[in-house]
Design a binder for these strands. Sequence first.
DNA 1: AAAACTCTAAATGTTGACATTTTAACGAAA
DNA 2: TTTCGTTAAAATGTCAACATTTAGAGTTTT
Lengths: 227, 227
Amino acid sequence: MSEFATLSSVTNSSSTLSAELTSTLRDAIITGEIAQGAKLSEAKMAKELDVSRGPLREAIRRLEGMNLIQHIPQQGARVVVINRELILQLYDTREALESKAVALAAEKMSSQEIDELHREIDAQSKQMRENSGAFVPAESDYRFHEMVVRGSKNKVIERALIHELYNLIKMFRYQNEFANTSSTNSLVEHRQIVYAIEQRDPVLAEVTMKRHIVHARERIERRMLVK
Amino acid sequence: MSEFATLSSVTNSSSTLSAELTSTLRDAIITGEIAQGAKLSEAKMAKELDVSRGPLREAIRRLEGMNLIQHIPQQGARVVVINRELILQLYDTREALESKAVALAAEKMSSQEIDELHREIDAQSKQMRENSGAFVPAESDYRFHEMVVRGSKNKVIERALIHELYNLIKMFRYQNEFANTSSTNSLVEHRQIVYAIEQRDPVLAEVTMKRHIVHARERIERRMLVK
DNA sequence: AAAACTCTAAATGTTGACATTTTAACGAAA
DNA sequence: TTTCGTTAAAATGTCAACATTTAGAGTTTT
């Protein structure tokens, strides 16, 4: 752990130092620059980042709320360890929340928002053709799922997924190449999901999304046996 | 807002002051002693509780993670306002998570844990007969649902529900008498849920729980029209 | 009277020092 | 060698003062 100021989001000028630290550390944890299970020593980090411990501690509390670190009183904070059990539990939770989200989205998304979904999967399809890809680029996959979740217009589900679950999943995927989204199935399934939303069919949307996530879960489960 | 040390959990001797403040404020918010929408002034509260602002700020960050307060940089923290829209979104989220939880619980709960479920609903039934109750006591209702959620053995769902959703629902119920759990249906539905778990039937458990929560949601929706 | 400006007071953000607890190294005893 | 106890260093928890930003009262201007 040395210079994580460098790999944080490009423009990182939040209004407060504490907020800035939160996103800096978040990125460092997701990329693995701060390793899973590593202890977050306040003194060392404060010195290295050249800030005082106050804002640092606040950032740590926020990361705690994002499930990225675990804090034990009088002992300090450690980066969460994503083992087989946790990642499967994350996908079970995601299955429940995201299938509900897409059902709501089928009722509430504006046609303009649906257009944006189309543009995203068209871009996915184009990228794959051009770049001989066997995988949907992770960034585009996140964008797609976040658009659907936001389309639910349910702030509680949105926060649970985007603020508290996706970060962990991003972390897992970033640090495990094998966990990428396979293209063949995923793109087809994305199209099916958009189709169901377009038809304003919540039930179809729900089962389609459920299957999409179960497939992803199964892929991970299979590949983690080998590991 | 004056003496909220008094109404916090009975034994409130957490290991750190910051943790103690967290649960004190949590209780004060749930009961409404600190009103919805109220500004949490750090200076005033620190003076009143006789602590410095450091631990207080950390407690506020934690409450932010529990969705109990909203924080705007350079402006401070306010208690969340539970309006019609939010409470209905909470119940939609709960429906998704808790129906998945009970499906998992049907597979993973030990027979000993199922016995505890029986004892809890038996107590509910007894209390209602004796106390001429038209309502399941809130505390007992929470215990029942928490036992089911823990039975899922899924830490992610457990945290999302118990740490981030139930507090808001408790807050709503505590401050709205009309939102209590009706006895007639609820007790029957609780029995049906336990039955499904006992039969190790995840699908039945899931639909039963889903219906149970949809009913509660509908009751709230109806009564909030009048309001 | 309404809008805009100034300035003061109050609030949040940040810092460095102090207090207390934990950890681990070291040495003594079984 | 292992275990237990002591002790010093390092880490977390807490505090009070300082810095910066925001909000509002009062005044001026249109």
